[in-house]
Design a binder for these strands. Sequence first.
DNA 1: AACCAGGACGTGA
DNA 2: TCACGTCATGGT
Length: 238
Amino acid sequence: MGNRQQRVLAFVYRWLMDRYGPQGWWPLVACDGVNPTKTGATKGYHPGDYTYPRTDDQRVEICVGAILTQNTAWTNVEKALGNLQRAGRLSLSALAATPVEELRELIRPAGYYNQKAAYLQNLVAFLMAHEPGDITREALLTCKGVGNETADSILLYAFSRPEFVIDAYTKRIFLALGLCDERSSYMSMKQQVESAISPDVVVYQEYHALLVEHAKQHYNKKPFGIGDPLINIVKALK
DNA sequence: AACCAGGACGTGA
DNA sequence: TCACGTCATGGT
């Protein structure tokens, strides 16, 4: 029964990669990656280069971005990250030394800045207290402010672990393609993909990024999925 | 002028 | 478990 879903998920990945090309997630402020074929925003992305993150600071930047982007447009996150970098606060030690009032002001453009400032301080303390090899999904989830998607984003993009990320876009697309229903849980969808696509950090990184890019084309205004060619293609698939 | 953005938490059924 | 209110800025 999972056999068709398996084929569909593999097909969708190839189709998206064919259409959009490598996405080069996660974006980094101090990264000069450029891909002229990419259709979406290219700033800070490094398509085809899977050697990131290269430094502890880049790892921290990804973790910070994962918190800041919660229910927030990435353009707003970029402003906050820019503030942090200009203030020299985009490192673990600098963040740990930043008073929460200052942190709030720096990340204000990302919204929910009171909550997120506290979440960031939690996460910074957590990261300082754990070795990279020591960081498990369960451990991350004990941080207040780190839920399923944020944990998986951190693991996949900052620590190169094969954890598939589900987000609101993924659910919209999977709904339209008949791969899940309205009340499918985060974990059920994650496990569905992870049992269909063998664990591979690069594939998981690209697949999630490709789903976001595709959703930005066809799934960010209601009714979702209008004009998405995948719907009919997948429907015709056996 | 609504509506949505790469969610998570606290609460009450 | 799960549905609902809350958190907040900025672009379309």
